[in-house]
Design a protein around this nucleic acid. Sequence first.
RNA 1: GCCCCCGUAGCUCAACCGGACAGAGCAACUGCCUUCUAAGCAGUAGGUUGCAGGUUCGAGUCCUGCCGGGGGCACCA
Length: 552
Amino acid sequence: MIKQELERVISEAVRRAQDADDLPAVAVPETTLERPQRPEHGDYASSLALRLARSARMSPLEIAGIIAKHTEVEEAVASVDVAPPGFVNFRLAPSWLAAQVDAVLQAGERFGDVSLGKGESLQVEYVSANPVGPIHVGNGRGLALGDTLANVLAAAGYKVQREYLVNDAGTQTETFAGTLYARYQQLFGREVEIPAGGYPGEYMIHLAERLKEEKGDSLLAPPGEPYAPELHDLGVARMMDVIKDDLTMVGVHYDRWFSERSLYADGTYEKAMAHLRAGGFVTEREGAVWLSASELGDEKDNVLVRSTGAPTYFASDVAYHYDKLIVRGFQRVINVWGADHQGHVPRMKAAVAALGVEPERLTIIVYQLVTLKRGTEVVRLSKRAGEIVTLREVVEEVGADAVRFFFVSRAADSHMDFDLELAKRQSAENPVYYVQYAHARIAGILLHAKERISSFDDGDVSLLTHESELALVRKMLQLPELVEGVALSLEPHQLPYYAMDLATAFHDFYEKCRVVSDDEALSKARLKLVAAAKLVLARALGLIGVSAPERM
RNA sequence: GCCCCCGUAGCUCAACCGGACAGAGCAACUGCCUUCUAAGCAGUAGGUUGCAGGUUCGAGUCCUGCCGGGGGCACCA
């Protein structure tokens, strides 16, 4: 990447300046380049001089001049300028930019990949909604963030595994099964109510009907007796079928569906507990087993095993992370959680420390909950109250692409509103179509060109000198930087903004430059340019999990 | 009461370790289709970045307090 090369160049310039005694030998902060907001400030800018001013006891502008003087420019750079209050601005050479079109075409669909991860194994776990109801709109955010993150990390050179934890062992699935059984019995004319705290949603009736179709009355226990384990398991399995369909609909595919129950079946849970005990972090009092957290950075102890002998959800999660980090040995694990689990974070961190795992290996991304609105009215999501707005119904209304683009466009920390009315009304105005349209337009051009020009492989990209052409190239070249940036910051919301910028650069070019014209040489060069732009657009969209249509 | 997150244009949101004149989309207004897709382009308007202090050469960004909103403080998950 040119950015990294320039960062190196500037570091060397500072070093040379210090060797030459032009600059005092003060500590130099790591040099990082910025992207100036204004084009007249060049392609990259360094504010290093501003940072050095204090310790060097010199004016920033003077330092900037010295850095610029000692900078050995390479061919890619057209100019190095000093600007007040003390920036050093780099401008890329038009000829070099034009030549990058061939480089992009050569990289093809892999353009944008970087080698940051060096093949390190990494796991991203996201959504993991309890199998007690369909995926709802709120889950859409976690899904978009997690899936995009996984895509980007893979592009950044990590060996990524996507995982969904199926909570098939908790009390919630028991309540779920209790509800399901009530609905099931109702289908056979028994007058039973769904249990208190159960799930009144209509989908439970459909699920019960499905069981009836599949199993007839064979799941019926004598009146008054509890449901058979088979009903619980079958119900959870069918619910997971629904969830998997929901996720498939928005293009999310997991490498593994991890059963919480398996932790108990295969002894992982016992091993994890033994591991904790060996570390001396477990105490027993009041008949319960606690993870003592005071020395691990958490505020208070947490119960692992209830006095009834039943493990808590926390114990499951400890065992789960023991499996991830120690048994399976992922070098890094990233969990994407909703803010309603935010209080669980310090506990989990403490547990990981108790397991003897370096804390940096676990990253928990907490995203703020989505406020659903219908116009100005706030819609409360509650599976218990029966009001759930499913992801499916929203996707059927506005489309998977718009949903994913929308959800991934917001920083995880920001609270966001999702207006169902607005989503429907504006689905045609969604920015995602703006980006897709650019891609489809290019496809149209390439189709048009096919009838006139047999091949543009021999196009000479040095003919690309128009400001709009170069602006488009500049934007394309940002993708690898962005992939690296997102892989480091774990903030995928940058991607949609980039995709829009790239589309803008293309649309601007399209207005100003005719691609297929009487000038065959220029036509071929521009065909190369748009073919490259198409690749980059498709890649950017692909990372977000959005389709890149050939026509619209 | 304590902890986490947020407050930026009419609406939804960006703003790269604190850096140059705070930017997009939508909505509004004015123009542009006999020419590769007008789901597009050009332009106009829109801001005391919740409030008050502080740190700094420089604050939307860091610190303190206050106001407002969301979430969390179980032997639930």
